[in-house]
């Protein structure tokens, strides 16, 4: 990765983290939503081991699901510990299963 690319990623990381924190301060995000999004950001930018999760998130966004199912997937994500690899894998599998139904 070039210096410029690293700088760009860092800028996106800083801006995104600030945006998430700001939204939480303005109460547009709940505490659980904020924690999940910040953890996801760290997982992608700092830990760099999030490919299966981002794939399933993309898949989810592409689907037009009913609100109840959306809520179910969201709850699965918010209650999952992203740092626990086993738990994360289980969550991803569960989301895939739910998405496969539609």
């Amino acid at each position: 990765m070039t210096f410029k690319e690293r700088e760009k990623i860092k800028k996106i990381y800083d801006e995104t983290a600030t945006l998430i924190a700001d939204l939480a301060l303005k109460q547009n995000l709940s505490q659980d939503e904020m924690y999940f999004l910040l953890n996801l950001l760290d997982l992608i930018v700092i830990e760099r081991k999030s490919l299966p999760l981002t794939q399933v998130l993309h898949l989810w966004l592409q689907k037009d699901l009913n609100p109840a199912l959306d809520e179910e997937i969201k709850n699965l994500l918010l209650t999952s510990d992203l740092k626990d690899e086993k738990e994360l894998k289980k969550t991803i599998d569960n989301i895939r299963r739910l998405l496969a139904k539609y």
């Binding site: 301060l25 924690y35 700092i46």
Partner: peptide, 25 residues
């Protein structure tokens, strides 16, 4: 990391002002 500080500050009710977040950013 920046994110962990934000989370910790939020959990402790310390970084509750947009100006604090601006400074941290």
């Amino acid at each position: 990391t920046y994110v962990e500080i934000l989370k910790e500050g939020h959990a402790l009710g310390i970084l509750t002002n947009p100006k604090d977040i601006e400074e941290l950013k």
